[in-house]
Measured scan of single mutants.
Amino acid sequence: DHWHVHIDGERIRLDGASEEFIRTLEELIRRGTDARELKEIIKEYLR
């Protein structure tokens, strides 16, 4: 599956992301997590 998110107007691909990770991201977004912080979390995950 190819997922991607838009954060700060930037399109970030989440290739190979699990549904669990996507749900976690959605939860963080709902909580109002800062965009820079979200991008860091995604970069760490994709390593």
Rank of each mutant, 00 (worst) to 15 (best):
D1S: 08
D1A: 08
D1C: 05
H2K: 11
H2S: 14
H2A: 12
H2F: 06
H2R: 10
W3M: 12
W3H: 12
W3A: 15
W3S: 11
H4A: 04
H4Y: 07
H4K: 01
H4T: 04
H4C: 06
H4F: 07
V5I: 14
V5P: 03
H6P: 03
H6L: 12
H6I: 15
H6F: 04
I7Q: 02
I7S: 02
I7G: 01
D8A: 08
D8R: 03
D8C: 05
G9C: 04
G9D: 07
G9A: 03
E10H: 12
E10P: 02
E10D: 08
R11V: 15
I12T: 02
I12H: 04
I12A: 02
I12N: 01
I12P: 01
I12E: 01
R13G: 15
R13W: 15
R13F: 14
R13C: 12
L14V: 13
L14A: 04
L14N: 01
D15W: 10
D15G: 07
D15I: 13
D15S: 10
G16K: 07
A17Q: 04
A17L: 06
A17C: 02
A17S: 06
S18E: 08
S18P: 13
S18V: 06
S18C: 02
S18G: 11
E19D: 10
E19V: 11
E19L: 13
E19C: 08
E19I: 12
E20G: 09
E20V: 05
E20S: 12
E20M: 10
F21P: 00
F21N: 01
F21V: 04
F21Y: 03
I22D: 00
I22E: 02
I22G: 02
I22Q: 07
I22A: 04
R23A: 12
R23F: 07
T24S: 11
T24G: 11
T24Q: 13
T24I: 11
T24V: 13
T24D: 09
L25W: 03
L25Q: 00
L25H: 00
L25P: 00
E26F: 05
E26N: 10
E26I: 11
E26C: 04
E26P: 00
E27D: 13
E27A: 08
E27S: 09
E27N: 09
E27F: 03
L28W: 04
L28Q: 05
L28F: 06
I29P: 00
I29C: 03
I29L: 09
I29Y: 03
I29A: 04
I29V: 09
I29T: 03
R30K: 12
R30W: 07
R30G: 10
R30C: 08
R31V: 10
R31P: 01
R31I: 12
R31C: 08
R31L: 14
R31W: 06
R31G: 11
G32F: 03
G32W: 02
G32P: 02
G32N: 07
G32I: 04
T33M: 10
T33L: 09
T33E: 05
D34S: 12
D34P: 15
D34W: 01
D34E: 10
D34M: 07
D34I: 07
D34C: 05
D34F: 02
D34N: 13
A35I: 11
A35T: 13
R36N: 14
R36C: 08
R36W: 14
E37D: 13
E37W: 12
E37S: 14
L38S: 00
K39N: 07
K39Y: 11
K39C: 02
K39M: 12
K39E: 06
K39Q: 09
K39T: 07
E40D: 10
E40P: 01
E40I: 11
I41D: 00
I41Y: 12
I41K: 09
I41E: 01
I41S: 02
I42F: 02
K43W: 12
E44Y: 02
E44H: 09
E44S: 05
E44P: 02
E44L: 03
Y45E: 14
L46V: 07
R47V: 13
R47P: 14
